[in-house]
Nucleic acid binder design. Structure first.
Lengths: 334, 334
DNA sequence: TTGAAAGCGCTACCAA
DNA sequence: TTGGTAGCGCTTTCAA
């Protein structure tokens, strides 16, 4: 256990200067003879350059901080894995932080900043604007994913939730559903607010004045619970729009427990298009979030900001699509 | 954008030496007067100590590398989140790496080592023994989670897969199932091998000489597919044990597609006890993996190894439990 | 309790 | 192409 092998030792063994060893591992021009000797010596000693020391002198970490709240919500694992692969592909390492959903990251951000991350990607967490200012002043770009915020310092990429929710309203209305309901997610998330607004605005625009509402928390159990409340009404809904897929799946199971048939007695439509929505037991009609595209744009903004921290911030919205399965009565796939 | 505020600048502003600033942020005894002035100056300048520089001088990163393959497999998000919270609680940051399932981490490990991680937790990836040796020599502890390996340098925590699979066999046999089948996961994972061995050994011990086998890949689709194959047999099975829950859910949907009733015509039992197994549409009987306990032990081993790299390696096995739901005919919950 | 100064292991600049 | 050397921003002796 010779814990630390440094470039100095490799240099000594290879009979070159420490600078030369550094050059070999930085891919800078070095005579072939020297390179071979250095590589051989490094091999024998089990040398790996110390990335921390390198960061120290280059003042560049190539580390991206990723802040996620609920990794366990089925929408996020894919998001995380995709970010990870894309980031690894451009030689950035990922320092992962978690914060509870709807918690501000005021305590996470300073910590992340200490690690001199090149940029911070923040998923499903609300961000206070003082902190936004701090990071702007410090020159550490922050990009929000699937969350929006009004702060002009902050860039964000999200789904077009207004549009998506309107599409859901149309899908239900076009197929003749008359008693509609909305199952909300966590109240203080921007996604939930936007989806609720999009849904209600479209209903009103089409002359529907009333609909039922139940409060959920973006979880399976809360969707199940919300659907039960809705179904207990003397005038139960015949079309339910859930703020996300996982609640929609809970709602489906609740409906079936009552002996009702989904897509016949009651229609359900979700938002996200998570893998389980396609599973045989559910066949959930839903509004997709185009995750790959959202991630692509998030990384593009991040790169821009890293290269030019003064580049203007912006919010991009990616339109989702209506994914037709069998949970909404009367909808034919195109 | 005054990008870099260092302790020197804080010191100047506070009228103390740089050493004193360092002491304040390291929690070392400093006169109250000085501490206040330093804190005030730091506040005004927006100073945060540079963690990279600290690592440099202390030669301790407090970073743990986490290597995961398939984050998207529903068993892992909870594992990841739990590890993250526990690690954050003891002030360790997490550098996350991904490798494809069943790929050796020979390319990830050297990279992680460059970051001087205090330890490496490796999940669902096979590890070559040369690399095990390297990390041992370097003094970087590796703990495998949910994977075992015969290398004596490597510690590991996994479920007692032999026992769990035997319990599954018993559950099926005790309830009078006569035509059994096994749906395998990825062939080169230790979990799959152990579960297959545990299942077949118990069957043989109880005098059952034959059972059908289908190959899956630990995914919903492969479970669906495998069940279809099994059901196409002229003598279809009446009891199916799947190497993990997600394949079992696929199998259930396949069975239903044939118009058969799960837990009546065909029984299905899984392994993991993921959240979806409890969902209304599935009600999957399964063998649990006691994740919290497994994580607790993994971190305990990790800590030991960090404190004393020479401490002996060991493999710990955590017994799972039979979780009775409705997918196996004739099983009454206790 | 404080300050001065010597590193930590690299990169990058300057001469040779 | 090479080697020498000055930092990077901290922590940690050692004296004062």
């Amino acid at each position: 256990m010779q814990k630390k092998v440094t470039s100095v030792e490799v240099a000594a063994r290879a009979g070159v200067s420490q600078s030369t060893v550094s050059r070999v591992f930085s891919g800078i021009s070095v005579s072939e003879a020297a390179r071979q000797r250095v590589l051989a010596a490094a091999q024998e000693l089990g040398y790996q350059p110390n990335a921390i020391a390198r960061m120290m002198s280059t003042r560049q970490t190539n580390i991206v901080g990723l802040v996620m709240a609920t990794i366990t919500s089925p929408f996020y694992p894919y998001v995380l894995e995709k970010f990870l692969r894309e980031l690894q592909a451009i030689d950035k390492q990922v320092l992962l932080f978690t914060a509870s959903e709807a918690q501000s990251i005021d305590d996470i951000l300073p910590l992340a900043l200490r690690y001199q991350v090149d940029a911070l990607i923040v998923t499903s967490v609300t961000l206070s604007s003082e902190l936004a200012a701090i990071s702007a002043q410090r020159g550490t770009p922050i990009v929000l994913f699937n969350r929006s915020v009004s702060d002009p310092h902050i860039s964000a990429v999200c789904s077009d939730n207004l549009l998506g929710a309107a599409m859901a309203a149309d899908a239900l209305l076009d197929t003749g559903h008359a008693r509609l309901a909305w199952v909300a997610g966590l109240a203080d998330t921007s996604t939930n607010q936007e989806r609720e607004r999009g849904f209600s605005q479209r209903l009103q625009a089409r002359g529907v004045a009333t609909w039922r509402r139940a409060q959920g928390r973006y979880t399976y159990e809360s969707g199940y619970q919300a659907a039960c409340e809705l179904l207990d009404d003397p005038q139960p809904p015949d079309g339910i729009f859930c703020a996300n897929d996982i609640m929609a799946l809970g709602a489906i199971d609740a409906i079936r427990t009552r002996g009702l048939v989904v897509g016949q007695d009651v229609s359900v439509i979700g938002f996200d298009n998570i893998p389980m929505a396609a599973w045989g037991a559910y066949q959930l009609t839903t509004i997709s979030q185009e995750v790959d595209e959202m991630i692509r744009r998030t990384l593009a903004i991040m790169q821009e900001k890293i290269e030019d921290p003064a580049s203007p911030s912006r919010v991009e919205r990616v339109a989702g699509r209506l994914i037709v399965r069998t949970s909404v009565r009367g909808l034919s796939s195109c």
